[in-house]
Simulated scan of single mutants.
Amino acid sequence: MIHGGDGGSDIARTLVDRGVVKSFDAFYQILLETTPEPVFQPGAYQLKTNMVASTALDALLDEGTRLSQTVVVPEGTATVDVLQSISEGTEIPLAELQATAASVAGFGLPAEATTLEGFLFPATYTFSPGDTAQIVLQAMVNRQFEALDSAGVAVGDRWRTIVFASLIQREAGLRDDYYKVSRVFLNRLEPARWDSGLLQSDATVAYGTGNTHLVTTTDAERGDAGNLYNTYVHPGMVVGPISNPGDLAIDAALHPADGPWLFFVTVNLDTGETVFSTTVAEHDAAVGVWQNWMREHPEYG
């Protein structure tokens, strides 16, 4: 998906994340060198993977690659951004989607749910012209229910599973790390291992501030008790979903890895390499590696 307002760096990062191109720098450099400046239309595009940067740019500017009535929802996307993608990929006005999403009673969600967050399954959807906001959103909700059923989640456990899976989805990187991240948070919920009971997830804090694209926070944000999603202040599991999780995160929530880890930090945002630690000293050393990497890659700052 290309969204309204996306700049060249946003598009380059999306292409790397989706495997269309391998190098952020190569694609971004071509953008800077192209005159006149390329203009991209919001919507869903169908591209090959492992493309040469120049070929990928040509494909994005080819109207034939833009898909009609198609919406791509990546894993971990927050509902506010899903609604934006639906609006850009279909003919449904954003205001209509927002109003429909606000009336959660008709979607069959667990009683605890006050929004659709967590229950819009991440996938590629193609809708028919004339489909209403209710039809589109219900299709995504139904698809999430199918995923939960396939994973063996009882109807009464849907809320608890989705809340935890949404946290894992936002915090984990590489596939195998999902199960380790799951274990870290469960270990932090055990008083014998972690007496504060605080999950201390930056992703939850960021979500509570409205920064749905971030997993980094400031000291002031981490100290804000008024943010109900602030797991640096409020102990126990986060109060609600912080993203829309996919099959892998759901499976990790149900089948955590065995291990003593209490900390983790992604030390390379390009490769997703994450270090899991048991002691504060081990974790501090890993954080140092991450900080050095960030200094060398200011585009991620």
Rank of each mutant, 00 (worst) to 15 (best):
G19T: 07
V80C: 09
V205T: 13
L262A: 00
A101I: 00
G208L: 07
A101F: 06
D247V: 14
F40E: 12
V163S: 04
G208Y: 01
T212V: 15
G7Q: 13
G130C: 05
T114H: 12
A102H: 12
P260Q: 08
G301W: 12
R222F: 10
D149R: 14
W261V: 03
L60N: 10
E63N: 13
T115P: 02
L214T: 06
G240H: 01
G118F: 02
D62H: 10
P298F: 06
I92G: 01
T77G: 04
P36S: 11
A253S: 05
T278G: 03
E63Q: 15
G210P: 01
R170L: 06
S54Y: 09
F127L: 09
P241E: 06
T115Q: 05
A44P: 01
S182Y: 07
H213M: 13
K180R: 15
I30Y: 02
Y207T: 03
L83V: 12
A44Q: 03
L83R: 04
S182W: 07
T274Y: 04
T35H: 13
P38D: 11
Q98R: 15
V280K: 12
V239W: 02
D177W: 06
G259I: 02
A59H: 09
A111Y: 10
T161R: 03
T132N: 07
K48M: 11
Q98V: 13
D149C: 06
F107C: 03
A111K: 15
N244G: 13
N230Y: 04
V215S: 13
G208V: 04
H3M: 15
V289P: 00
D176P: 01
A12W: 05
E33D: 15
R66S: 05
S150I: 06
G19D: 09
F24V: 10
A111Q: 15
Y178M: 07
A102F: 09
L148M: 10
G4D: 13
Y28F: 15
E273P: 03
I11Q: 03
L109M: 03
A53H: 01
Q98C: 05
V184D: 00
T115S: 15
A220F: 12
S128P: 00
L186M: 14
D81Y: 05
Y45P: 01
Q84K: 15
V72R: 08
K22E: 15
T124Y: 07
G226L: 08
L97P: 01
L189Y: 10
E91V: 06
Q29Y: 09
L97V: 09
V275Y: 07
G210D: 06
T161D: 10
K48L: 13
M1K: 04
S243E: 06
A151F: 08
G226K: 09
D157L: 10
L167H: 04
A165C: 07
I30V: 15
A253V: 05
G76R: 01
G288W: 11
N292Q: 14
T55I: 14
L15T: 02
G19M: 05
L137I: 12
A133H: 06
G226H: 09
G208P: 01
T231H: 01
L199S: 02
W293V: 07
A206C: 12
V155S: 13
L60E: 09
V163P: 03
T90W: 00
V16S: 04
V104M: 04
E282W: 05
